[in-house]
Amino acid sequence: MQIPYTVEPRPDTGLYNAKLGVWLFLASEVMLFGALFSALILLRTGATSWPHGYEVLNVPLATINTMVLITSSVSMVMSWAALRLGDFGKYRKWMGLTFLLGLIFMVIKTIEYAAKFEHHLYPSHDNFMATYFTLTGLHGLHVLGGMIVIAYLLGPGSKMWMTEPERYTNRVEVIGLYWHFVDLVWIFLFPTLYLL
């Protein structure tokens, strides 16, 4: 039994299965984060007092983190481009860099959290801290999930490049779409939490 269109696109939709699948998954993610943004807006609108993010949070650190994540998005597309050119060595370098940048993002995040805890700022402190921790925490989990898949693709999953290079390239495209989406969420989280 062979499932059709796992590698080549179906002519009438122009997509292979996993690509449609990941876009649908991202659509559901839009609704997930959309609901959280909706919650943030509603809570802030109804709040009697709400601090400006820059008064409480570390903007320079978060700016660095934004740069890290944007760079990781570029390295991700570069790795995909390298793979499409058939240059597996270059692909590995770019993908490895992406993983590293993800790691740096998480480390900076941890430093940020630790500083908050040191000042006894926990999620229960007020609704600003609550949204800050919940949204960045959930976003962080998404980064972590992406890193795990990248590690798999670079490690045991890379065997597929030898047997089914097209399918492997598709996988890289799909994880790339997810990774950029996580970047995109951050692009909105950063100003709403830190700068306003």
Partner: peptide
């Protein structure tokens, strides 16, 4: 299911 469940998931997390 795809588009309506995530908001409940968000609410559940909250």
């Amino acid at each position: 299911l795809l588009l309506a469940f995530p908001p409940l998931e968000a609410a559940g997390i909250l």
